[in-house]
Amino acid sequence: MKNNIDRRAFFHNTGLAAMGTMMISPLDIVLGRFGQVARDQTMQRRSLTPTFILEDTLRLLPFTDWDDTFINSFLINHQVFHRGAAYQIEPADTEVLLDEVREKWKSKETADEAQTQLALLAGASLYRLIDSKIEWQQNLGEEKTLPTLTDEAIYYDVVVMKEMQNSDPTKHHVEIDKPLDGVKVGDVAELFHLIRQRNLIRMHTFRPEFTGVELWLDQVLDYQHTIEEENHRYAKIYCDPSVADVHADPSFYHREDEIIRLARGMQVSVTELTTNVKEAVDKSGQQSTYAQALGASVNMLSDWNKYIKDGSVKAKLLESF
């Protein structure tokens, strides 16, 4: 893997090191026993592709024979599931959290919380899994700021977007690896800006970080510049992939892979409902990078399902953090 972020060093240098000096274990914080200590966040890959894969994972849930309660944990708590990307949970602490989920699962009073906790933990483990499956380069952020996206990351995000566009028979076909005739970069950049603007309406307001607003302001203002620049970079590569200067991996995404067909079909309600998801997942291990990551993601959720049912595969799950 060409990920040039040393994740452990990052945590060591930031939040968890600070926790250590205060003699409070991350476990206590996660469990809410010491609700008075700040907890730093993790540094997962920023590009959209991991989130695309996680969303596709959720799209495949209805095809499984898993319990409704298990499936609904993710469909109801899908935002918490994605927030798993923002959490670092140390392996040593995870076991207690896993035990706790199963314990809460048994009681009606705590079942809702168990579902939410499962969504967060599973989301965290799946983001890490997908991170390990993606090969392309990512930039190293400064200590206080987020890394900007590499052209490579944007290029593959654009590939997925265009494949989604083309999977819908009602939509205008776009070339995946050629310039788009008659499409203006400025228009596409504005569209990405508007997508973010609409998301801001959905979010309503920003919550500041109370413990250090000056740093938070610096981070948020830097981030505002970053995403404005990235809107334009996405647009340029969307309109002409050759500007990315990427040696494209032809095995990144194969729209014929069954598991991908299933996921794309679920986006436009044209899925062949008889498709065997298990077979699609089994085949994915030998297919495109995207299919492999998606298949591995479904398999890991299957492990979570087994764990909730009978406590098995616990060791395997612990290794995933």
């Binding site: 914080i29 010491f34 200590v37 966040q41």
Partner: peptide, 17 residues
């Protein structure tokens, strides 16, 4: 885009203060 944006913002926050 929304979920990726929220994850980015979450990295500037601390959840237990």
């Amino acid at each position: 885009f929304a979920q990726s944006f929220a994850n980015d913002l979450a990295r500037f926050r601390k959840y237990l203060t």
